[in-house]
Amino acid sequence: MIRLEHITKEFSSKNKKVTAVDDVSIHIQKGEIYGIIGFSGAGKSTLVRCINLLEMPTSGRVYFGDQELTSAGEQELRLARQKMGMIFQQFNLLEQRNVLKNICYPLELAGISKKDRIKRAKELIRLVDMEEKEKAYPSQLSGGQKQRVAIARALATNPEVLLCDEATSALDPITTRAILALLKRINEMFGVTVVIISHEMRVVEQVCGRVAVMSRGAVEEAGEVKEVFLNPKSETARRLILPDKDEAGSDAGRHSIRIAFDGQSSFEPVFASLVLESGIKLNILGANTENIGGRAFGQMLIEMPKEQEKQETVKKMLRDRGIHFEEGRDGR
């Protein structure tokens, strides 16, 4: 659906050149939800802007379906953009238009008659659950509501792709979850390919199928979210998964392991039974788990006993239960 080939984007100011994106190649399949994750300044927002050419890459090619966008004319590019919706961290709604008229905007561009515009806009308002706010102006809406309107607007012209640039970063955790659920529903209902840019692992974890981890403009690792989450290979991915791991692991002589939950039943008291059955005292250094639909997602950082054999006992018990874990670096 979207193919980025050797994309490089440099920004040059007076005396220095900054490479925001450095030789990135990504292939996003039709109908998937693809995540691009990285810390601030990793180049992910620039990369997503290279997809619809809001930023023209310095070198490399962008393909949308069979069409090469990097060589397309202005008119062709505009038409291609109408097939790619985009939502933003700051929502970017037209402040002087109400909800209905905001959603009508892309339909006006597409040259649809006023009657059909309003009909389509109302359908979308229903889709994003904003029926009561149809006549409201953006300044009267909460962040989550604004993002719903932005999503409706982005979907108005039935795009094949939806690009989300830090779309949930300005929202609280509960609203974030609701917006992500909406994106997932849209993906399933209409088969819209979704590209999600985020700096939060839990966002990517909740909805994405595949993910690319970016750092300093380059993709450090890419693959199935589950795979990256359970066995992160790059330093960036590790830090994104467990931000406080560095501090916890830095104490000399400590041996810690990271247990990852990827959808085990949250009703099963894994940790308690581990302690009780093994009789070994374990210390939780950090935990970050969420219960999504009765299944546990997240991770726990556990300090292991000093004795080698006790360590082996714990690891064996975890293996027997089919729970993924990863040993801390200083234990190796």
Partner: peptide, 8 residues
């Protein structure tokens, strides 16, 4: 930017 992204 949003307007550009919609193909204006």
């Amino acid at each position: 930017e949003a307007a550009e992204s919609m193909g204006s």
